[in-house]
Amino acid sequence: MSAVVAFAVATAWHAGFQLTVTLLVYPVLARRSSEEWRAAHDRHSRTIAPLVGVLYLAVLVTGGLLAASGPDPLGWLALGLTGLALATTALAAAPVHGRLTDRDDVLVARLLVADRWRCAFAVLGAVAATAAVLAGG
């Protein structure tokens, strides 16, 4: 399997995961009351962490292989967009999650905005990676 195909598979998985979180998981979490918040947020964090770890490792490893192979411009675009999704997680979503020990409507709103951005970057990264495969890159 070529590096660009491996990266396209990983980014498709990432985009599907991110769409599920954005469209299903976070809306349910955001509707939790103050009384339910801590237990629901802790359960969410515990259960999603292993999947995030495996998924992000797959994206990073295949992205490293793609970068080392000298991708075409679509491949670089896919790497950049996917990198923005990961950076949005590291710099925006994860720090907000860390502060959400109790329900705070302002922080929940920030989390939802950060999540929408990373979802958009993840989907666009997967589209660019797929286009790179189809272009023969």
Rank of each mutant, 00 (worst) to 15 (best):
R31I: 03
T89H: 08
A132I: 00
A39L: 12
A78H: 11
A3L: 03
R116W: 01
P27N: 14
R43L: 10
L112M: 14
Y26Q: 13
G136H: 09
L55T: 01
R103Q: 04
D105N: 07
T82D: 06
G63L: 03
S33V: 14
F7T: 01
E36K: 13
V5D: 03
A93G: 06
D102A: 14
W13Q: 09
V59S: 07
L112R: 14
L24W: 11
H97D: 09
L60F: 10
V106C: 00
A126M: 00
P95Y: 04
A40L: 09
A15K: 02
A8L: 04
E35A: 13
G16N: 09
Q18P: 02
G125E: 08
P73T: 13
L66Y: 08
H41P: 06
S2K: 02
A10K: 05
L81N: 11
L57F: 12
V108D: 07
W117I: 15
G63D: 10
L134P: 07
V61K: 08
V21Y: 02
A114D: 07
V61S: 12
V54A: 13
V123T: 14
R43Q: 09
V54E: 05
G16I: 02
R46T: 12
H97I: 02
A67R: 10
R99M: 11
L91Y: 08
D42R: 13
V25F: 10
I48Q: 03
S33G: 00
S45A: 15
A10N: 05
L79Q: 04
V21W: 00
R116D: 11
G16Y: 02
V108R: 04
R46E: 10
A93D: 14
V9I: 15
G98I: 03
A135F: 07
A12K: 01
Y26M: 15
A128P: 03
G80P: 02
V9D: 03
W13G: 04
V28D: 13
S69F: 06
A58E: 03
W37C: 06
G80A: 11
V5Q: 08
T130S: 09
T22D: 15
S34Q: 13
A109F: 04
C119V: 01
L57E: 08
V4Y: 09
T11W: 02
S2T: 14
T89C: 04
V4I: 15
L79A: 07
L65D: 08
L86N: 03
L112N: 13
A126R: 01
R116A: 15
T11E: 06
C119D: 04
G137D: 13
T11Y: 04
G80K: 02
R103M: 11
A109L: 07
R118C: 03
L65G: 13
A67P: 08
T101E: 12
L24T: 12
F121L: 09
R46H: 07
I48Y: 10
R110L: 06
L55V: 06
T130W: 02
L112I: 05
L57P: 06
H44D: 05
A93I: 12
M1W: 00
D115S: 13
L124G: 01
A93V: 14
A40Y: 11
S69W: 08
V113L: 10
P27Y: 01
W13S: 01
A120T: 15
A8Y: 04
T88H: 06
